[in-house]
């Protein structure tokens, strides 16, 4: 009865005018490396003007994201505004929306913290080469690493840096993710792993099932975590696509041209 009273008191402010806004799908990059906000809903996207230029890599979700330029890491809030900067001249940085990992030093840097407070991931625990950052929460983070030619998903404790769990995805993704041509095209999400190649996106669910989505044939595909439930498929010489995903599956959409926007 007390719980019911609490809900009743809170409903009215829950739908106040200020609580309605333009839905933000996520980010997209253009051919010049500039990042743009994407508003709208699936199938009705609107690409806005550039919010930042010359992004070498980026990752974004509902809570915000990270953007790597030639010499900086920039922290983005949930609306894509830059709310923090950190010098980072390293060319090799792996990103997810909340963490940056520097393979050369093994530093794992939380976007919300000073770099001095970076966590060190022991290379011995990795036992190979980290090629992507997976999802993270307040307790742990997943790193995708190649041990030889095999892909491993390693779960580390955020606080101690200890390796908590490791698994080796099988299937096409397990076989192909560590091939040189695919290193920039692996994305580890909470409940699935994506691998892009020249003509398709291979999706492996947490149960090990794989499905494929064809994409226009191209010479270089990169995939970014672009929003809470959005992945951007960036293809050389072709329009960008976004993959929207939920518990029921994935669907591919073409994005409007970003180059036309100021």
């Amino acid at each position: 009865m007390n719980r019911a009273a609490v809900f009743l008191l809170c409903v009215a402010p829950a739908v106040a005018a200020s609580n309605f806004s333009s839905p933000l799908v996520g980010l997209t990059g253009d051919a010049q490396g500039k990042l743009h906000l994407v508003h709208g809903v699936a199938g009705s996207f609107v690409v806005r003007g550039a919010i930042a230029g010359q992004a070498l890599d980026w990752a974004f979700a509902a809570s915000g994201g990270l953007l790597k330029t030639a010499d900086e890491l920039r922290v983005l809030d949930a609306q894509g505004n830059v709310i923090g900067r950190r010098t980072a001249s390293e060319s090799q940085v792996l990103l997810n929306p909340r963490y940056a990992f520097f393979p050369e030093t093994g530093e794992l840097w939380p976007a919300s913290a000073h770099r001095d407070r970076a966590l060190l991931i022991q290379s011995a625990a990795v036992g190979g080469r980290v090629i992507a950052l997976g999802p993270a929460d307040q307790r742990e983070i997943v790193l995708a690493a190649c041990r030889g030619d095999h892909l491993w998903l390693l779960t580390f404790d955020i606080t101690s840096g200890a390796l908590k769990h490791e698994s080796a995805p099988g299937g096409t993704i397990g076989e192909q993710a560590c091939q040189a041509a695919h290193r920039a095209a692996l994305l580890v999400l909470e409940d699935r792993v994506l691998l892009a190649n020249a003509h398709e996106i291979v999706i492996q669910t947490s149960t090990g099932q794989e499905r494929r989505l064809p994409i226009p044939r191209n010479h270089g595909t990169r995939i970014h975590r672009a929003g809470e439930d959005t992945v951007e498929i960036e293809m050389s010489g072709a329009p960008s696509f976004v993959l929207r995903f939920n518990s029921e599956g994935e669907r591919l959409y073409e994005l409007p041209a970003a180059e036309a926007r100021p």
Binding site: C10, V15, F20, S21, S22, P23, G40, V41, S44
Partner: peptide, 29 residues
């Protein structure tokens, strides 16, 4: 709850047609 006024007010300032995002927070004791 009746959201017509709040939503109508939002639409007048939006260029996204009928798309909207609702952010609702429910405090819990």
């Amino acid at each position: 709850v009746d959201a017509s006024a709040a939503l109508g007010q939002f639409f007048t300032s939006s260029d996204l047609g009928g798309a909207f995002s609702l952010h609702a927070f429910f405090p819990v004791n």
